[in-house]
């Protein structure tokens, strides 16, 4: 499959990345190389095989839905670039 410039821009937008001009070219060619190689999965003998999503067979691991208080709130919020009154602060989203 050929990767177009438009596709790279579309994918970057989905991934919330802003690419500079030389990055667009570089990633377009990198992605093409990797996909050309990765295409080998389409030749693998996998007819009628189920998909595997995890490395062990466990599913639906339940636990009680209990509130546990995380005590180090200051330590957690200290990592935010901006905070106010124990909340993460972001610019206004509604005008």
């Amino acid at each position: 499959m050929k990767v177009s410039r438009e596709e790279i821009l579309h994918i970057a937008n989905l991934a919330q990345l802003e690419l500079e001009e030389q990055e667009i070219e570089k990633y377009q060619s990198n992605l093409q190389d990797i996909l050309d190689f990765a295409n080998i999965v389409n030749n693998a003998p996998v007819e009628n095989l189920d998909i595997t999503i995890g490395a062990n067979e466990m599913k639906n691991v339940f636990r009680k839905d209990e509130v546990k208080i995380f005590k180090n709130i200051d330590g957690l919020l200290k990592n935010a670039p901006e905070q106010e009154q124990h909340m993460f602060k972001i610019p206004k989203v509604l005008n």
């Binding site: 499959m1 996909l35 990765a38 999965v41 389409n42 693998a44 003998p45 996998v46 095989l49 189920d50 998909i51 595997t52 999503i53």
Partner: peptide, 16 residues
């Protein structure tokens, strides 16, 4: 389907 789903099937193949 062409990549991710196929890869998950290959994962089963590898495990088998």
């Amino acid at each position: 389907d062409a990549y991710y789903k196929k890869a998950q099937q290959v994962r089963t193949l590898v495990m088998n």
